[in-house]
Design a protein around this nucleic acid. Structure first.
Lengths: 107, 107
DNA sequence: TTAGATACCTTGACAGGCGAGGTATATAGT
DNA sequence: ACTATATACCTCGCCTGTCAAGGTATCTAA
């Protein structure tokens, strides 16, 4: 991604959850949407994305199901759970708070 | 620290440099000042702080010298270098950019 | 038939944060 | 005299998240 990944770190899960709030989605599309929204300035790497999915699934924040595509590559869909929505709101609050704190420390 | 450290990660060096822009300082004081400015909501752990100092020194962003305290524990002072100031401005720009990008991705 | 887009996945290396441990000096209270 | 607390520094090794590199498979267009 074009912005330093250390700065994105810790927000990956939040970003993924955000992209699932409105509708179910799948890995490849989530990434495309993120790139589209940010002019390709943010791009979650494959490996990062799938590691995050495992984590979110393990924590019960998303559920998965296979799409029923009859042509093309199969898609694994992710749906945010109720718990996922709650945690998303919480992560978002934490981000907003962290943002202000860091700003307060910069000259 | 009270805010998730994953969210702070990547900003440690920037925060330390920021605290050196106005005046030389030393580890313990830098930490106290950060805590004071944030109501103890941000606290750089000892180990984190000193690892960061090694990194900044290696990269030529700070210089060090021992204080001449005649009483009390000795203090190792850090002074930001010219390069350090440049890099700080750059880190800050990156932070501001990252902040906007992340905000753009949250619902 | 070849290239590129779509779509998924795992392994192992790497970097930063930090718990736990250590050293040493000064002061205030008991 | 002893103890606790604050000041002030440091290292080692674990943990976690990122991601380069590698892999599989399908479809479309040149």
């Amino acid at each position: 991604m074009s912005i330093g990944s250390e700065l994105l770190r810790g927000n990956t899960d939040t970003i993924i959850l955000a992209s699932l709030v409105g509708h179910d989605s799948y890995g490849y599309l989530i990434n495309k949407e993120i790139m589209a929204k940010t002019d390709s300035q943010v791009e979650l790497k494959d490996a990062t994305l799938y590691t995050a999915f495992r984590r979110l699934e393990k924590d019960g924040l998303v559920n998965t199901y296979w799409g029923d595509e009859e042509v093309g590559a199969r898609r694994k869909y992710y749906a945010i759970t109720e718990k996922g929505r709650e945690v998303y709101e919480q992560y978002k609050e934490e981000w907003l708070a962290a943002k202000e704190l860091i700003d307060k420390l910069l000259v």
